[in-house]
Design a protein around this nucleic acid. Structure first.
Length: 570
RNA sequence: UGUCCCAUGGUGUAAUGGUAGCACAUCUGAUUUUGGUUCAGCUUGCCUAGGUUCGAAUCCUGGUGGGACAACCA
């Protein structure tokens, strides 16, 4: 069950798509049936933008007791592959949805072929032997009408013959196409005799070499909807101009099907998801993968669903995000902060708190006995007591974060500086006494004295101390590799890039790997995808490529850090 | 010199003819053994000009601004 945010009255206001659906139901359209479809082309992995489409396609069906089918729009064998089919199914399921049936547009090739024959016989389609350049030239421009093709009035028998031979492989690719005969002067470019079949000799991932002529999107999509009984065909805004053509083909299809009565699929368009600083175009993502700028579609930096999954995002965080942004017809750009907030909101309740030191420096408690080990109790999650506690070993020599010590600290620095008291989380209050540096002035060791009366739980521990530091025991810690992902994937927003190559805009800091990070022992047995909050640092999860010898953590999202803001101001 | 779509704080989104609300972001304060969380609060908005109406973010018209459309891609 998918959660939705409700307002005070307990009713969530409907988005415009739900309004349309409810109106159609109220009017008794399509026998009060609701059927949707999610129609990806299997030419790449799903990204966060697809998640938005998935949520509305499946969500509408779920909400109005209808069904949503998965349909692969596989009408262009050149770009498609079964690898993508598998990944798409996996990602939809991970998001928590179940489809009614799995269909393929390629299953409809015979029906589409028959439909094309119908159009030819009715004098509504013809074989054009011009080159693509000639056809493009004749098409005119948005402001100038097009011109008729010299082949436009070819006899029907000739059209039928050539169409048949097109599919037998008698002609080379590009030699001829089948076009619908509509209106070369239409103000809608898509009505200027759109191409509906072209020759492709590349084998298809499902039908092999059975076909040589393949239908175009416009000729396959609406028709597939119609064959399946789709009532609401929800897609993104750029298909708005296609809708009249969608309707035109449906009209033609209905001519010989009186038995279908008033049934008619309806296309509805919503705004595509754009995220600040995030590459979302499938073409560019494919380029990143092919040029090995990332380590595959599931690289944790990728905005793909599997990339986010690997990076520790949860399905519910994605649902909550999609729920926050809504569906409209306004083409805007969403701040990634909204997505990251949804992730933090979810992980705050679920992630176990652990101690990890990313940039370690040694802290020696000079008055703590050598060899002594105390087990300190740490709460697993202050938001959820039922998650229990775990113990962390405390010793004389600890690691703390290098940036948690400053010799000459500004006023608002609440961490360790000579003479100032700080609390070691879950342990003692300590007071810094000094530090040791190497020849270059780098701090190598920090010294402090602990107050034995201030161990957590003791009355003296209630003393007010501004700063609380996380730490791990030198002796009891383990080493790991931690990948820090910069939250900004690009240095500019997509769309602002103009003519620049988007690859040059990729933030070089996108991936920073820190090796030698010191973590508490607790993490030794963590499993892939387990989520943790590194105290005061951020949310991290275990990368599936981790081994017993090498633990790799991905930063899911950084913690909100108000200290860095204070620091920037000074 | 076209057709279609869109316009509410910085960002996104509600209000569908009757008090412009919510979230994120920002800032301030309180609590806090995470500079996290939580809580309280501040600041910021109906593109514009007319019209209809007792009353317009909402309906109409004209501007302005943005987007989509000229792939044998989907």
């Amino acid at each position: 069950m998918i959660e939705t945010n409700n307002n005070e009255e307990g009713k969530k206001s409907l988005n415009f798509i739900e309004v349309i659906v409810e109106k159609d139901l109220a009017e008794g359209k399509n026998n009060n049936q609701i059927q949707t479809r999610f129609p990806p082309e299997p030419n790449g992995y799903l990204h966060i933008g697809h998640a938005k489409a998935i949520c509305i396609d499946f969500g509408i069906a779920q909400k109005y007791n209808g069904i949503c089918n998965l349909r692969f729009d596989d009408t262009n064998p050149v770009k498609e592959d079964v690898e993508y089919v598998d990944s798409i199914m996996e990602d939809i399921q991970w998001l928590g949805y179940k489809w009614g049936n799995v269909y393929y547009a390629s299953d409809y090739f015979p029906q589409l072929w028959e439909f094309a024959l119908q159009l030819i016989r009715e004098g509504k389609a013809y074989i054009d032997e011009q080159s693509s350049e000639e056809i493009a030239k004749q098409k005119g421009t948005p402001t100038q009408p097009g011109l008729d093709s010299p082949y436009r009035n070819r006899p029907i028998e000739e059209n039928l013959d050539l169409f048949e031979r097109m599919n037998k492989g008698e002609f080379e690719e590009g030699r001829m196409v089948l076009r619908a005969k509509i209106d070369m002067a239409s103000s809608n470019m898509h009505f200027r005799d759109p191409i509906i079949y072209r020759i492709i000799k590349h084998p298809h991932h499902r039908t092999g070499t059975a076909w040589k002529a393949y239908p175009m999107y416009d000729f396959a999509h609406g028709e597939s909807d119609y064959f399946e009984g789709v009532t609401h065909s929800i897609c993104t805004l750029e298909f708005e101009v296609h809708r009249p053509l969608y309707d035109w083909f449906i009209d033609q299809l209905k001519i010989n099907k009186p038995e279908d009565g008033s049934y008619r699929p309806r296309q509805i368009e919503f705004n595509r998801l754009n995220l600040t600083y995030t590459v979302m175009s499938k073409r560019k993502l494919l380029q990143l993968v092919q040029e090995k700028l990332v380590n595959g579609w599931d690289d944790p930096r990728m905005p793909t669903i599997c990339g986010y999954r690997r990076r520790g995002y949860t399905p519910s965080s994605i649902h909550n995000f999609i729920d926050k942004i809504g569906y409209t017809k306004y083409d805007g750009i969403i701040d990634v902060a909204l997505l990251e907030h949804a992730v933090r909101e979810d992980l705050n309740m679920k992630a176990k708190r652990v101690s990890a030191v990313l940039d370690p420096v040694k802290l020696i408690l000079t008055n703590y006995p050598e060899g002594k080990v105390e087990m300190m109790e740490a709460v697993n999650n202050p938001e959820d007591e039922s998650m229990g506690n775990h113990d962390i070993a405390f010793t004389r020599e600890l690691y703390i974060e290098r940036e948690d010590f400053m010799e000459d600290a500004p006023k608002k620095f609440f961490r360790m500086t000579p003479g100032q008291e700080v609390r070691l989380k879950n342990a003692y209050i300590i007071k810094c006494t000094g530090c040791k540096k190497d020849n270059e002035g780098n701090i190598t060791e920090i010294y402090a004295e602990y107050d034995p009366e201030t161990r957590s739980g003791m009355p003296e521990s209630n003393r007010k101390v501004k700063g609380t530091l996380h730490w791990v025991s030198v002796e009891h810690s383990i080493t790991a590799e931690v990948r820090l992902y910069d939250r900004l994937f690009m240095t500019e927003n997509p769309g602002d890039e103009k003519e620049k190559d988007f690859r040059e805009l990729l933030n070089p800091d996108s991936l920073r790997v820190l090796t030698g990070c010191r973590l508490e022992m607790e993490l030794k047995n963590a499993k892939p995808y387990d989520n943790f909050q590194f105290q005061r640092i951020g949310y991290f999860n275990i990368d599936p490529d981790s081994t017993a010898d090498k633990l790799i953590f991905n930063r899911t999202v950084p913690l909100k850090d108000s200290w860095s803001k204070i620091k920037d101001k000074e």
